[in-house]
Simulated scan of single mutants.
Amino acid sequence: MYPVSSELYRQVAAFLAQVVGGRSYFSGSVEGETEGAAWRLTASVIVYRRRVSQPEGTAEPISDLVPVWWEFHTFAADGEVPNDFSFGEIRDLFRSL
């Protein structure tokens, strides 16, 4: 079993935020490499945002991602490895921003 670290959750969330951009719905994949393994998240998510007003202007950062469907795969040199990924951890990262 490949243990998904806090660092990997942050990396996945950063990649996901980048590809979601300003959309309110995302369906697709993000992938990367870390800690000796490659990973791929394929997901369809509904994107919720909150409005933040500051003297410099208004922004609408992601406040939550509600998964419709998702799969997270990890790959080592000898093939796919089961992992302990939880989409709830990704949601918690966005909720805490």
Rank of each mutant, 00 (worst) to 15 (best):
A43V: 06
V47D: 01
H73S: 08
E71W: 10
R51F: 14
T42G: 13
Y48M: 13
V68F: 01
P61W: 04
P55E: 12
R40E: 15
V68D: 05
S63T: 11
V47Q: 01
G32D: 12
I46Y: 15
T74F: 01
E33C: 04
T42F: 06
E35K: 03
L41C: 10
A38H: 03
Q54S: 15
L41V: 11
E33G: 07
Y48F: 14
T74A: 02
P61T: 03
R50V: 15
V66H: 05
V68G: 02
A37N: 02
S63W: 05
W69Q: 09
A59Y: 08
T34P: 00
A37E: 03
A37H: 09
P61M: 05
V66N: 04
R40H: 08
V66K: 09
A38E: 10
E71G: 01
G32Q: 10
G57Y: 13
V47T: 04
V52C: 04
T74W: 02
S44H: 13
A59E: 11
R50A: 13
D64S: 07
R40S: 15
A59K: 05
D64C: 05
E31P: 01
F75S: 00
T58E: 15
G36A: 04
T74Y: 00
F75N: 00
F72A: 04
R49C: 06
S53K: 06
S53E: 14
W69K: 13
P55D: 14
F72W: 03
E31H: 11
P55V: 14
S53Y: 03
A59W: 06
T42D: 15
S63N: 08
E71L: 08
G36T: 05
E56W: 07
V47F: 02
T34Q: 12
G32E: 11
P61V: 03
I46S: 13
S44V: 08
G32I: 11
W69P: 00
L41P: 14
W39G: 06
A59M: 10
F72T: 03
E31S: 15
V52Q: 06
E71I: 11
W69H: 06
A59Q: 08
G57P: 15
L65F: 09
W70E: 05
I62A: 02
P67Q: 05
Q54D: 12
A43F: 00
R50Q: 10
L65V: 13
F75I: 01
W70K: 00
V68E: 08
P67N: 06
W39L: 05
G36E: 01
A43C: 15
A37Y: 04
E71R: 09
S44E: 15
V52S: 03
A37C: 05
P67A: 12
I46E: 15
G36L: 04
V45E: 12
E33L: 03
E31C: 07
E31D: 13
H73C: 06
V47R: 01
A38V: 02
W70P: 00
E33I: 02
R49S: 09
A38L: 04
F75H: 00
R51E: 15
L65Y: 07
P67M: 00
L41A: 13
W69I: 05
E60Q: 13
W70H: 14
W70M: 01
D64P: 04
V45I: 15
G32T: 12
E35N: 04
I62W: 01
I62M: 01
